[in-house]
Design a protein around this nucleic acid. Structure first.
Lengths: 147, 147
DNA sequence: TTTCTATTGAAACAAAGTTTCATTTAGGGT
DNA sequence: ACCCTAAATGAAACTTTGTTTCAATAGAAA
């Protein structure tokens, strides 16, 4: 079962409709296979189906996040990025000064989260970890300047 | 040494100026002592010093984040929230459906982050953990409806 | 006190995200 | 295969969030 099929299935399981727009958005996300902003995704989706609007992209991302098949992520910057959770779980190391970001493949967390969820009656479906610091380049320069 | 003094000292140490605006912003952050959006902070700061502008609030928050005396946090919603790191370290459990948020006092992570930093030459100064799932209320309702 | 430069407020601007509404469409029931 | 209805859509207006510009101000070091 491909990533796209898995994602469509999650929509079906939730009783939601598989529309042409949703299909295009999901296929594009799967092809890009990296953290993308809503704006980047919109552009890529429109290259495929020009009439899709911004609202649909935001609405679909919202649904996919609720279903936990897409992870939303801030990466210390202004706009949120999105990635299919099936694209593989990873975390980030973010430089507080220049915002350079490095992917960390190993998961720093796992069992701990379920215990936390149980404590509050939550069904835990995912987690986000971002580690902040100063990158090698920025350590040598003034603490506030943007490299 | 109070939280406010510590924060002012961090500015001094970085060779930055202690202006009336920065002082007011920092004092307000310390008084609020919780996660606040830039807009909330602006309003609270203006109640104290009306002529302070929006740009100064954003600029000051930016500086404080770089110095790691303020933590920026997304909490699964649209706008970023800020909190003084001296206000105490904690994490969040966020409902993907209704965005209800619960604070977790115990830190799920600690030593692991430094090891990661070393590996990439980063000086680690903080981290963010958000655990996502479905809250007790939303488990009983449709997966996409906003409670 | 003087000087230098960081910082400021205001306002215009840009980007990100949401809402509204008339129209279309997926897909279950028949 | 065809209705029917609720879900979903695109477009556009709108709101919120964040950034830039620029002339004026004010820390703080000498």
């Amino acid at each position: 079962m491909t990533t796209v099929e898995q994602t469509l299935q999650a929509l079906r399981d939730a009783g939601l409709k598989i529309t042409a727009s949703r299909r295009a958005i999901i296929e594009t996300l799967a092809e890009m296979n990296r953290h993308v902003t809503a704006a980047e995704l919109l552009e890529a989706v429109q290259a495929r189906v020009p009439e899709i609007g911004k609202a649909s992209v935001y609405r679909t991302l919202d649904v996919l996040v609720r279903l936990n098949v897409v992870q939303a992520c801030t990466l210390g910057s202004t706009s949120t990025t999105y990635i299919l959770t099936t694209a593989g779980h990873h975390h980030h190391l973010v430089c507080l000064v220049c915002h350079r970001t490095i992917e960390i493949d190993e998961c720093l967390l796992d069992e701990a989260t379920e215990a936390i969820g149980r404590k509050f009656g939550f069904l835990v479906e995912g987690h986000l970890v971002e580690v902040y610091g100063k990158c090698p380049d920025c350590m040598q320069t003034s603490p506030t300047q943007t490299t």
